[in-house]
């Protein structure tokens, strides 16, 4: 599973879309009600992922091929410049793989299901939330 490429991940999710129980877990929706899907590998840039989510209107169902298996994330990106206090500020060089590790570590034990974060670069800061989704099907 750790060696899954993007094409394999895409097919993996596509096949499961036929299962209504799986579709129920896709909670991030665009304004028109459709469910955007983004397929990520651990080496992908978190910064680019945030940009892509914005391109879908600010919410997307993100799937990451990790070593233990496919991880589903309800991912929201915000244009608001006000970064929530206590939200970890991640470097723009952060990869999706590192983000997932941070998400798992920081979210465990806090009791919070929604993880707030910010990605900083030289000239801007983007904030967002991520919630791990238990996949069915």
């Amino acid at each position: 599973m750790g060696d899954m490429d993007r094409t394999t991940l895409c097919r993996f999710v596509y096949r499961r879309l036929a299962d209504p129980l799986f579709r129920e877990r896709l909670t991030a929706a665009a304004d028109d009600g459709s469910r955007p899907l983004i397929f990520c590998l651990p080496d992908d840039s978190l910064r680019l992922l945030v940009e892509r989510v914005k391109g879908y209107g600010g919410a997307a169902n993100v799937f990451v091929a990790t070593a233990p298996g496919v991880l589903g994330i309800d991912f929201r990106a915000s244009d608001e410049k006000a970064v929530p206090t206590r939200a970890p500020r991640l470097n723009e060089a952060c990869t999706v793989g590192l983000f997932v590790e941070r998400l798992r570590i920081d979210a465990s034990g806090t009791g919070r299901s929604v993880y707030k974060f910010a990605v900083a670069s030289d000239d801007s800061v983007d904030s967002g939330t991520a919630k791990v989704v238990a996949l069915a099907g």
Binding site: T7, Y14, P20, G33, R35, P36, L37, I38, F39, G55
Partner: peptide, 26 residues
């Protein structure tokens, strides 16, 4: 069931200019 619609980038397309839309009724 009501139609379910999903959208994703065509695999390997990096510029966001090719997408796949899936509509499902179950």
């Amino acid at each position: 069931n009501e139609s379910f619609v999903s959208t994703f980038d065509a695999p390997g397309c990096r510029d966001g200019k090719n997408r796949i839309k899936v509509r499902i009724v179950s």
